[in-house]
Design a protein around this nucleic acid. Structure first.
Lengths: 348, 348
DNA sequence: ATGAAAGCGCTAACAG
DNA sequence: CTGTTAGCGCTTTCAT
């Protein structure tokens, strides 16, 4: 069927060991035989069987990337940057999509373990279920989390400072005069959302604005979930004058809903979104955001994983890297409408 | 180090073969021993080593996905749909990004071959270089192309009817009264762009509008390439009254440029984009598009590949599947400006 | 510098 | 129904 190193060796008139040395560029071998083997390999159209090699060396040059949804521009962009760094070092990415579903994630992690990936990058779907992540670590695979901390687990992580990002955003809204600020995110079983919620709460607290439970809303992770929740928030009895959307999907759903319901942004409701999108600049109004430097995050993740896979012991354990996000105020944020009867001017 | 089937067999007090049968659910085995083995495996925390299994069975349950840029929403969305269908059948996706660079693509295909993927889905970066794709096919891997035909190669493909999509779009512009219609795409070494150009040309021809070489422009595949080209097109001596953008990246670049240059859409220039984006609806004006039903494309690709991997011989060879796109006219298309001295009313 | 041979973890004849 | 055994293609001691 396929051409093996055995065929190459025979063709070149050398032993399998010599052929292996020639093809793998290791050990002692005469230039003469090396050339012979290389030529034979070329002539026969030989291509190495990495699986067989992996079985003996124990390394696959493959890393697993486990995320909620590869269609989400946040993950797609992250994948691009991670891949860029990893591909340069000869690694291939196996992408596993979980639909933010823990059972799928567990399946994915074990499947990837079975496929003997050298490392895994995971954006865990749940704060509370991590036995599979522990199992992967214990089996000797390098694991680094991205975007979402697992406070109960000692494992490397790279993420944006979500607390600060949310805090800055909400503080900016408060400075504009808002006191009725809504928070909308997807599941609070996801660590980054919890951190963003904490930032939101702290900003309100520091401004002595009472926390209103009705202003904190969560929904699913898809665009349509975001849309539905937005419709309910915008049509609620007590509509906030500003909304902090904890992700691009939530913000997009809200924009779609606002358009359909003829709610004016920012005249009636201000908006700040987590995640910057190229097209946010194109909207009328352009959208204010907490931008995540995904290039930096992706590179940091890749670099850290690479070091772990190479067992670089100059690293602390675990390594926790926080990348600062930055607030960009555009046109979707403005002072609250004058007619708002609940207007509560900021103290500052 | 790790727990193997040998350990499980010993623990359960059976032979390796029996353990393998129990774990793999095949052959004859008593319920009693099966339970024993399963329990031992569970107790020991055994996880199968798929690589070793693959080495003997010759199948990996892995498929390679070779695309230009996973960050491009077109590919990201495609990946999602393909993955959905494939994951349901137990396959994992290895994503290889080529940056639309043939050398990278060649490297990727050979790397994936070495990793013994059962199948590959490729959006080839070049019309002319396909020896590597042939090699993959010849090595027994199921290969199906997506989005881009390779006319000189007998290989399965699923793609949108690019000719028709472009034809319909340009015809719609002509009906609105345009005769100075620009075409902007990335590389014409990419089959789908060529097909779209052909559709553009044919629509002009059928309306007896002379083809102007200066109205056909190509550029790179990134957003910034699209932006730069758009600036030059919009500031050219003879600016078209309508532009057909052959991809979402090109269209986005053009929108960004139009905003920066204060060019009014559609008052001064009409625009139709290939690829529909959720946010196109949110812009002012909303963007007219040739929408590609990516869910259908992704599912068709996955289904076809699955059949090939299973050697379903009810299939023709090669199988060529065209999915019809559909034109959605929104607000970015309007009659040309009255002041245009070159106005050439449609004949219809 | 080169070759013989062991073995990575698993499946699949084959024999019993 | 169960166990023994021969590989899958490759790397890597260990001799020579």
């Amino acid at each position: 069927m396929s051409i093996t190193i055995r065929d190459v060796a025979r063709e070149a008139g050398v032993s399998i060991a010599t052929a292996s040395r020639a093809l793998g560029n290791y050990g002692y071998i005469s230039e003469e035989k090396r050339a012979l083997v290389v030529e034979a390999a070329h002539k026969l159209g030989y291509h190495p069987h990495s699986l067989a090699k992996s079985l003996v060396t124990g390394t696959t040059n493959t890393v697993g990337f486990v995320v909620g949804d590869i269609e989400n521009p946040f993950f797609a962009s992250l994948a691009k940057w991670v891949n860029l760094s990893l591909a340069a070092e000869g690694y291939t990415l196996m992408v596993y999509t979980t639909d933010e579903n823990v059972e799928d994630e567990v399946r994915g992690v074990y499947s990837l373990m079975g496929k003997q990936v050298d490392g895994m990058i995971i954006a865990p779907a749940s704060l509370h279920e991590y036995a599979h992540i522990l199992a992967a670590q214990n089996s000797g695979i390098a694991v680094v989390l991205v975007d979402r901390f697992l406070p109960n687990l000692d494992v490397d992580i790279v993420a944006v400072d979500n607390f600060k990002g949310a805090y800055d955003a909400v503080q900016a809204l408060i400075k504009l005069g808002h006191s009725e600020i809504g928070f909308v995110s997807d599941s609070l079983d996801i660590a980054s959302n919890v951190e963003r919620l904490e930032g939101y709460k702290q900003a309100l607290k520091d401004a002595h604005i009472p926390l209103m439970a009705g202003f904190i809303e969560t929904t699913g992770y898809t665009l349509i979930d975001g849309y539905r929740k937005a419709v309910s928030v915008l049509s609620g009895a007590r509509r906030p004058t500003a909304i902090f959307a904890a992700s691009n999907f939530i913000a997009t759903g809200l924009l779609l809903a606002a358009r359909d319901m003829d709610v004016q942004i920012p005249a009636q409701v201000s908006l700040i979104s987590f995640d910057d999108m190229e097209w946010y600049k194109l909207l009328t109004p352009s959208i204010s955001v907490v931008a995540q430097p995904l290039e930096k995050v992706g590179q940091a993740v890749a670099r850290l994983l690479l070091k772990r896979m190479r067992k670089d012991d100059r690293l602390q354990y675990p390594e926790k890297i926080r990348i600062p996000p930055h607030l960009i105020l555009r046109e979707s944020t403005a002072p609250p409408p004058q007619t708002a009867e609940h207007l509560n001017p900021p103290r500052s």
